[in-house]
Design a binder for these strands. Structure first.
Lengths: 197, 197, 197, 197
DNA sequence: TATGAATGAGGATTCATTCAT
DNA sequence: AATGAATGAATCCTCATTCAT
């Protein structure tokens, strides 16, 4: 509508998207700013209008990726166990679809030790992740759907299971179905905690 | 035989050790061959006597690290459940002790997509890992200690749980005890499969 | 005449002023066109409406600065010695006030070897400078106020003295008063040439 | 004598020499590290073994150049006036020979405002310069060769005169003989201060 | 075996300058 | 007149790798 549409707002996602693609292909270390610029069909110099340097770009990408984790969420009147089951399915499907980017996730996690900003972002993401899951479990305990237990430990266990499945599936994707495994893992946990009525 | 003992044989582990240290500190991408040489107290040129190039060095390190995974192993007359329990404790202790190197492991795993040699090494390591665990479970089933079930799925589930715990503990080591979690995770699995006698 | 006054005429001094400020702060080499645009509160692109390129802008600034040298000038009936004394005081005061820009002057002078246009401008400026001074001295000789002598050499000597004082005062401004030194230098010269009546 | 002569020690002067040459030709700002490497017939990378970055190289060059100022120095039994006269001649000759580098000197001086390290080096150089000259003048006063007076002011005046002559000669070298002017300037000062016997 | 010197190839970053509006 | 977006061409600097000894 405006005579000159603000293309600027589109640039950041455009660049992050391009970065994710080439990072996933070649690894962050071996990817140059030129690679990203080429993939984004922009000039190298323009990248620097939007990101001060490569490190910042990586941080922004990290933030973007780790804020896209889909969190469990119980809809009104829904059984907690159903909510968790649905969520696990969702996650499995999403991750399997984003298979190319799993390795990038590991690279980012590896930065946790040496890069303070990345550390903060990833810690927060996992904390939020655990909190959301824990909340649903606690709710289930409260309304008698689940047996009492340590919700935090359970939540951590589920997250570990999922992350671990991601890793071994990333290494050998042809060996099993990620989505199915997510479902199975969730079933095992639910079997352990659902109250015998 | 030679008057001065062949120092040469010491060099490779010396270099790999140094590489592991600096890689773990700065990340593989940001670590230079000079860094490694300095850490190993050797000249850069000498590194190239032992490793054709950086890639090879990384591959050798990868092989070395992933062949150090401690595998479950049942001693004569030992109950399978006891063997697994002991093994889980061991693993937890070892990984917790090697905390600095966990990130390096993720970086190596991330290479799986772009580096064929690394892929082969890591796949083999995980396959061996899963096989060893599966064997013990199968044995337990055979001798009636465990309920029948899909040993491969169980093994994968345990590995996923452990790897996932590594990841989240790497991110937030102060949040929980890795070793204890390894034990709890193993308990949960065993509870699910041990035959009620 | 035009309803809104032609802002255009204001732009050139505005830009040159801004350039002088940032050049003086950061040095010409380290100053970017963006710096100048920011200081002038104009867009970079607009700079190029008024100056074809950075070199031209520098040349214009050079011309502007070196044409601002205040030249000696005898008013009607005034003694030459008085005219020179007043002029020295003026110069001293002006230069001391423009202390921030002295360094810029040296940078411009340094360009004399590699930039023909700058060379022409600066040569002309010094030639005019010397000529004006020489004229007053010659007048003083002609009307008997000064002893006969080589006016050109005297003029050059005064200029050298002033320029040299600028330099060492620029380096260590807290060591002495520039204005006072200008006065003293002029006195010394006058004492040497004023006729004993 | 040693099997591999330490070529390393030669590199620093070699590089500084090359830098001086290209800096003098093109100006420091427009000279690239490649230019210097080419002039020195060394690889760019090697420059960085000896100088952390361009700024450091410039600082080293600055130090080198400003420590080469030849200072006045009275030999045993020599009249102070003679010592000063000889010194002025020397200076004039040296500077005239180093004409190409005068501009470089001005560029360095211009850095005084924005570069603290350069400032320290140049201040020290001028302070030493002034001190040496002052000492000789003071000696002349003490032994009755010169009239009493403010040695510091005289020294500064001489230095200003010399530096100013450098500047205007740099701008218009064909207009006069630098060496001769140095001599004349020194004569003027001496005539003013030598005691009438 | 061992190493300090040396470098080519490249990568991050900058900046003068132009273009579309 | 005015500008934000955009870029090509550097420029600084790094680093894996090789060479001479």
């Amino acid at each position: 509508m405006s005579p000159r549409p603000d293309v600027s707002a589109q640039r950041i996602p455009q660049i992050l998207q391009a970065a994710a693609i080439v990072f996933a292909q070649k690894g962050m270390g071996r990817t140059t700013m030129s690679d990203i610029a080429d993939e984004a069909k922009l000039s190298k110099a323009l990248l620097y209008k939007y990101f001060e340097n490569k490190e910042n770009l990586i941080l922004a990408l990290c933030t973007s990726i780790f804020s896209q984790l889909s969190l469990p969420d119980r809809k009104e009147e829904q059984l907690c166990s159903v909510a968790l089951k649905e969520w696990a399915d969702n996650c499995g499907r999403e991750i399997a679809a984003a298979r190319n980017y799993i390795g990038l996730g590991f690279e980012l996690v590896a930065l946790v030790r040496s890069d303070e900003n990345v550390r903060l972002v990833i810690r927060k993401a996992y904390a939020d992740y655990a909190k959301a899951l824990e909340d649903v479990i606690l709710l289930g305990i409260k309304n008698g759907e689940f047996n009492p237990g340590d919700a935090a430990v359970l939540a951590r266990s589920v997250i570990a299971q999922f992350e671990g499945l991601n890793l071994i599936w990333f290494v050998e994707p042809e060996k099993f179905s990620l989505q199915k495994s997510y479902g199975q893992a969730m079933d095992v946990m639910l079997n352990g905690i659902i109250s015998a009525s």
